[in-house]
Design a binder for these strands. Structure first.
Lengths: 117, 117
DNA sequence: CCGTATCCCTAAGGATACTG
DNA sequence: CAGTATCCTTAGGGATACGG
């Protein structure tokens, strides 16, 4: 008996949520933007200098597509682009807070930074 | 100026948490075990028939290593192995609940099943 | 400054067959 | 029943160079 193909993109809601925040840098980007609007280069500085432009652009585009992040382009040279959270994006903050707390509590020894300063 | 190598396994606590629950089937396995102890084959049935033995074994081993799941082997033929959550594993349930709720609320149209029945 | 465009590599995940 | 053992495919992520 054959297993039928999936009708939906996701089987379980948890899958869907993790897909949206599951990129390597996505949760950090969202978490960083919770304080307010930031420019592209500021995100690089705040999140992690190790991130490449290609990856940050890619993940920001996906976050935008999923409606978590707003992108505002200023028509000027050199370019200026600002990113901020949408309502939908903000609704993830409490969850990210808990993910952060759980990590600190249970895996603290393997982690460089803490949740808040 | 060179970026120094990482001293810790993770930079941010969120990373650490997502690494622990981030496998394809891990959150579902944890979520399924929250009702109580289950045998290997029962997990397959409950989580998703699409999962392969290899993958389920692999993820269960990792969950065990991370201290989220207990494994109890009965010395009998045919084998019987029971899995259950540890305290640490149980501590993730509230977070998974929220991940589930968020998914239902914001991505409902792309999802086959709901959080609870 | 804020991106693309390429190319590359590794790890995650899967198919299938076999076994105590 | 509950796994290993192999082999294979793909997607995620990264390095680097170039462009408006």
């Amino acid at each position: 008996m054959k297993i039928p193909p999936k009708k939906y993109k996701y089987s379980w809601p948890i899958e869907a949520t993790l897909d949206v925040i599951g990129g390597k840098w996505k949760p950090l980007v969202i978490y960083t933007l919770k304080e307010g609007t930031l420019r592209f280069s500021q995100i690089v500085d705040k999140v992690e200098p190790r991130i490449t432009q290609r990856m940050l652009t890619k993940e920001l585009r996906e976050l935008e597509k999923d409606g978590l992040v707003k992108r505002k382009v200023y028509a000027q040279v050199p370019p200026k682009v600002e990113y901020s959270l949408t309502k939908k994006g903000e609704s993830l903050i409490p969850i990210l807070d808990e993910l952060c707390d759980w990590g600190s509590e249970h895996m603290g020894d393997d982690i460089e930074f803490t949740c808040e300063e």
